[in-house]
């Protein structure tokens, strides 16, 4: 069985193997293999191309940008997505603006181990896709399956633009697949992971699985829930969501990030303005609570949307 984390490691292994321009740079990723072991064994297999960096997120991203200008394809690891705030300036002001300003592309991949787990607390649990998606020039990927973790990371390396790759820590070892995919869904396309006729859930990353569990729960009540995995939040595949809403007439957006703005707000804004006539009920959203991500597992599990919370939200929406 292959885990989500194995898939990420395999993608980097394959990228290093097939493209001499690829190198990895980040904290503890060399001989140690990374805080989550995403790069385990790669430093030995690719000597000199998997490099430990100082505790300097700004410099890590800046170095990736400079290397990319000179034709390399760096993949950098932020130890936790939360720490990317220390590299935020280079990401949003430099990597994101480079092509528009200078016509020189910036093919870097910034891997963000994202999302919460029990005991992670305020500074090791954040979901930052909405923040980065706000900036022109960035691509933001949020794979929710083992297959996507693999193929989307390989896609990210081939893209000429900076990619913020939000990989979910909770899925690292929980999620397993039989084998790695041979085919890939086109970049930027959403996928319907469960077909249904009564209500659409648009979601991504770990929330895909909570939403699928909620859909199972509602099946017992006789409802068929359609689940759309956005896969890439920027670009956002509004067409697939609109087509789904055209079939179901109802939309719930689920995300693990903070509630103000963000991906779910963007999806609802687009569906409302482009597909108002398709809706039989006001579109709803379910996000994390508007507090820092709490430490204690009891608090954490109530802070983020869960299958139960999603099921309740769906029942309310179906009764509207």
């Amino acid at each position: 069985m292959i885990t989500y984390l194995d898939a990420i490691r395999s993608a980097m292994d394959e990228a290093l193997g097939r493209d001499p321009r690829v190198f990895l740079y980040g904290q503890d990723i060399g001989a140690f293999g990374g805080a989550f072991k995403a790069t385990k064994g790669l430093a030995t297999k690719y000597p000199g191309r998997v490099m430990d960096a100082p505790l300097s997120e700004d410099a890590i991203v800046g170095i990736a940008i400079g290397a990319a200008i000179e034709g390399m394809r760096p993949i950098v690891e932020m130890q936790f997505a939360d720490f990317s705030t220390c590299g935020f300036n280079q990401i949003v002001n430099h990597a994101a603006t480079l092509f528009y300003r200078t016509e020189v592309p910036c093919p870097i991949v910034v891997r963000l181990p994202s999302g919460g787990g029990p005991g992670g607390g305020p500074f090791h649990s954040q979901s930052m896709e909405g923040l980065y998606a706000q900036y022109p020039g960035l691509v933001v990927m949020t794979p929710g399956t083992v297959e996507d973790a693999y193929s989307m990371l390989l896609d990210a390396v081939t893209l000429d633009d900076p990619v913020i790759f939000c990989e979910h820590k909770f899925l690292y070892n929980h999620l397993r697949a039989e084998e790695l995919p041979k085919e890939t869904t086109p970049i930027g396309k959403a996928r319907i992971v469960r077909h249904g006729r009564d209500v659409t859930v648009a979601t991504y990353s770990a929330m895909v699985h909570e939403s699928l569990a909620a859909a199972d729960e509602l099946r017992e009540d006789g409802y068929q829930v359609e689940v759309v995995d956005l896969r890439t939040v920027k670009p956002l595949d509004t067409d697939t969501v609109l087509a789904s809403v055209a079939r179901t007439g109802r939309l719930l957006c689920v995300s693990e990030s903070f509630p103000w703005g963000g991906v779910s707000a963007e999806v609802i804004a687009r569906v409302t303005s482009e597909g108002f006539g398709l809706l039989d009920a006001p579109p709803q959203r379910l996000s994390a609570k508007d507090t820092p991500v709490p430490y204690h597992p009891n608090l954490w599990s109530s802070h983020r949307p869960t299958a139960n919370a999603i099921a309740s939200a769906l029942r309310r929406l179906l009764e509207m």
Binding site: S56, D58, A59, I60, V61, G62, I63, A64, I65, G66, A67, A68, I69, E70, G71, M72, P74, N89, Q90, N93, H94, T97
Partner: peptide, 18 residues
Amino acid sequence: ISHLGAMIPVVTGALMAR
């Protein structure tokens, strides 16, 4: 870019690429 110091790691990365 306007943000001071930002070009230092960028040149460092360019030299790493070379």
